[in-house]
Design a binder for these strands. Structure first.
Length: 595
RNA sequence: GGUCCGGUAGCUCAGUCGGAUAGAGCAGCAGCCUUCUAAGCUGCGGGCCGUGGGUUCGAAUCCCGCCCGGAUCACCA
């Protein structure tokens, strides 16, 4: 198939040059799809060219429109409204396009070249001191979806997770467990491992707060009290012991982390996300430290009186940044430096993407600059995919106020809602118990995922639980339903094996719109990949489903008596279903065949 | 205070490398199932695109100021 927009643009430029002047900027010629309510398929705005042509907009548009109809056989007609030249494309072209699309079940999906160096994407990045919550859910879904979109656009993608399994926060959980748990385990308490460990993190906080309050009551300044409280001192000591390799501390650390991983695995599986490689900060922070030491030798960094190591970024308009504490322990930045280096060595990626919340924008600015100062040229290929916080109707999530939405609970709730609504609708005919469970899962998760992914990542979003399980309108289940509906038609179409393409077909507006819309899919995939934007894909697939539903409403398919037409509509339906399935897949959403 | 991000219908969001009368969904109201799945379709009402300037034939979109909200500027991650 030829590229219509390009062909039109070239022809336009050709005609313009002949008739007027060769001296104009070809960027001024922009071919776009015509607005729905106006007759035509492609539109060129001639306003930018009136000066170069020294001609009134309408006259100019008419002149070039006439020329385009003559030169391009697929342009059947044109009209002019003000300075807008609207071109009508011949139906023979649309039918040719329809034929191409419907014969390719993977239309719009590019194969990746295995020799191309990969794009590495990090997402999830949990801490091992507490279970995943709603914010992580947005992160995981975004990361997974962006990875799938990049793959569909022909890239090799390596999905990685970075588990923050070390640091002061883990020591807090460990300390509280030692003090209060009396040896509790996931088995003994029947709690998911991540939830059990999270419980002790909260316990620590309680203890710590009470100690601070006590000190303040004794007349100590609050800030000072926070530094002196025995709990935090013990936790810091524990971190030093851990870094020193103290067997008992390391043993406890291993035990508690293993509980957490078991819990995380279950959550990831339910969420439907996965990773090609999992990095652990406990395995990368030493490389970070040595990298920092090396840079120190090369005079890139400096040491303060207390022995702590810093980067001076004041030239870049940023502050000084700590890289190693006075006691030699590493911080977040140190670990990220080591991790980045390790990944470069492991995969030689063409770029490294980090899906991390916008509260860390500064961190990533610093990371890039520090790596650049250290002389790593690949630092420029680091991209922070920054996304906004998820807020609840009554404000932000706050663990202290118990308003954190737990990921496991959330998923269970949407699935339960899906079950309730599906049972009411009575559309489970013929499904086994197992299949029905699968269906509730697909629909519930479809609702949740679509709800979270349809919003532009960089914006903060409001999570309204009631709307997240809505099944009408701009929702996952609406799109899934459209797919299921098509599947139902396809199942009943066994006697329609007619080849439509030799016949002379006359198509109507709804059919033409649908063809155009499907035809846009490859470009949408590409744009979504360039913009790291699942939201764009969600928006497209919703529009496509809506377009199909209109077509479906107005046009008989199986009941159409003209065999060629019936077969054509069936092919169009099949193609729509395939696009919906592939688009949803890029959002991590499954498309049931019945619902 | 510095830096960054956002402000579009009652609510949640599209639209933002300048283009035609600013679009969806939800909520509200009114219709459409003896016919391929009504989780659908059709219609109605609803907008100083935060605000004031500027650039332009043309601004929700670009530039400047201001107002409001958020993030960040940690020896937390």
């Amino acid at each position: 198939m030829i590229n219509l927009e390009l062909a039109i643009k070239e022809a336009f430029i050709e005609i313009f040059k002949q008739k007027f002047t060769a001296d104009f900027n070809t960027d001024m010629v922009v071919v776009q799809q015509t607005r729905k309510e106006i007759e035509g398929d492609y539109t060129i705005n001639v306003f930018p060219l009136v000066k170069a042509a020294a001609k009134a907009p309408e006259a100019l548009a008419h002149e070039i429109g006439t020329g385009l109809v003559q030169i391009l056989d697929f342009v059947s007609n044109y009209n002019v409204i003000k300075g807008f030249l609207n071109l009508t494309i011949a139906d023979t072209y649309w039918l040719e396009l329809a034929k191409t699309m419907t014969q390719d079940p993977n239309f719009g999906i590019k194969e990746s070249d295995p020799n191309k160096s990969p794009i590495l994407i990090e997402y999830s990045s949990p801490n091992t001191n507490k279970p995943l919550h709603l914010g992580h859910v947005r992160n995981n879904l975004l990361g997974y979806s962006i990875a799938e979109i990049l793959k569909a656009d022909g890239n090799n993608v390596v999905k990685v997770n970075l588990v923050n399994d070390r640091g002061i926060h883990i020591c807090k959980s460990m300390l509280a467990w030692e003090k209060f748990s009396q040896g509790a385990t996931p088995q003994s308490t029947n709690l998911k491992g991540d939830h059990l460990v999270g419980k002790y993190y909260v316990e620590f906080d309680r203890l710590y707060k009470s100690q601070i309050a006590e000190l303040v009551a004794q007349g100590v300044e609050e800030e000072e009290a926070a530094k002196q409280a025995p709990a935090i001192l013990e936790a810091q000591e524990m971190l030093r012991q851990w870094e020193a390799g103290n067997e008992q501390v390391v043993g406890l650390w291993k035990k508690m982390n293993s509980w957490v991983y078991e819990g995380f695995d279950a959550t990831y599986q339910k969420m439907g996300v996965d990773f090609d490689k999992i990095y652990y900060e406990s395995e990368t922070y030493l490389l970070g430290k040595s990298t920092v030491q090396e840079a120190l030798k090369n005079q890139v960094l400096f040491v303060k009186e207390d022995g702590s190591v810093w980067a001076d970024l004041t030239d870049e308009g940023l502050d000084q940044k700590l890289l190693l504490r006075a006691d030699g322990t590493s911080v977040y930045m140190t670990q990220d430096i080591g991790t980045a280096k390790l990944r470069m060595d492991d995969y030689q990626p063409s770029s490294m993407l980090y899906v991390v919340g916008n509260e860390q924008n500064y961190h990533f600015d610093v990371l890039k600059i520090v790596l650049q100062k250290m002389g790593y040229t690949w630092a420029k290929d680091i991209y922070h995919i920054s996304y906004g916080m998820v807020e609840l109707p009554h404000g932000k999530m706050k663990s202290r106020e118990g308003t954190v939405v737990d990921a496991d609970d959330l998923m269970d709730e949407v699935i339960a809602s899906a079950e309730e609504i599906t049972r009411q609708s009575g559309k489970m005919e013929g499904l086994s118990v197992e299949e029905a469970q699968q269906l509730f899962y697909k629909i519930g998760m479809g609702a949740l995922k679509f709800f979270l992914l349809k919003v532009d990542p960089k914006k903060k979003m409001l999570f309204n639980p009631a709307e997240s399980i809505d099944f009408n309108g701009n929702t996952g289940p609406f799109v899934q339903y459209t797919h299921a509906r098509i599947q139902s038609v396809l199942r009943k179409s066994t006697d329609h094996t007619f080849e439509p393409w030799q016949s002379e077909l006359i198509i109507n507006d709804k059919e033409r719109n649908l063809i155009k819309m499907i035809g846009n899919f490859p470009e949408v995939v590409h744009q979504a990949a360039l913009g790291f934007s699942p939201a764009l894909m969600a928006s497209y697939v919703y529009d496509l489903a809506k377009e199909y539903n209109q077509f479906y409403h107005d046009n008989p398919i199986l009941k159409e008596e003209n065999k060629a037409l019936a077969s054509f509509r069936l092919d169009l339906s099949r193609s729509t279903a395939a696009i919906i399935r592939n688009a949803l897949k890029m959002l991590g959403i499954q498309a049931p065949n019945q619902m």
